[in-house]
């Protein structure tokens, strides 16, 4: 089999996942897109392991480890999303903006900066 087929399929799946992570609003849909990206990496690992005929089968072992870590990640991630939903009443990522910078200004407002400097003095 041509090695390009699995490699290109993995690339396209990864980019689909990138689009999902960037474009989705619901946190659980973002987690689904992360799963797609992880699966693309796994496909690459298996394809290159079979191509190289590695005696240690490092690619397949690493794929199993990635699957287990992805399972742990989805468990913790869903627990966090549920906790956020319980506290805030929403699981939409772009409504969780407590850490954003204030609108209409650069990274540091000059006036604020002066006031803080005066307060410190």
């Amino acid at each position: 089999m041509h090695l390009v087929y699995p490699a290109v399929l993995a690339v396209l799946l990864f980019c689909t996942g990138v689009y999902g992570v960037l474009a989705r609003r619901n946190a659980i849909l973002v987690l689904m897109s992360v799963e797609l990206m992880l699966n693309a990496v796994n496909l690459n690992l298996v394809a290159f392991d079979v191509w190289l005929r590695d005696t240690l089968h490092a690619g397949q072992a690493l794929t199993l480890f990635t699957i287990a870590i992805a399972a742990a990640e989805i468990g913790i991630g869903l627990a966090i999303v549920l906790q956020v939903h319980r506290n805030r009443g929403t699981a939409d990522i772009d409504r969780l903006r407590d850490l954003r910078e204030p609108d209409g200004a650069g990274p540091q407002q000059p006036a604020d900066h002066d006031e803080k400097a005066e307060a410190a003095a």
Partner: peptide
Amino acid sequence: VADAFRTTWI
């Protein structure tokens, strides 16, 4: 990827 592996077969 296609350019790098164009002559590789599994």
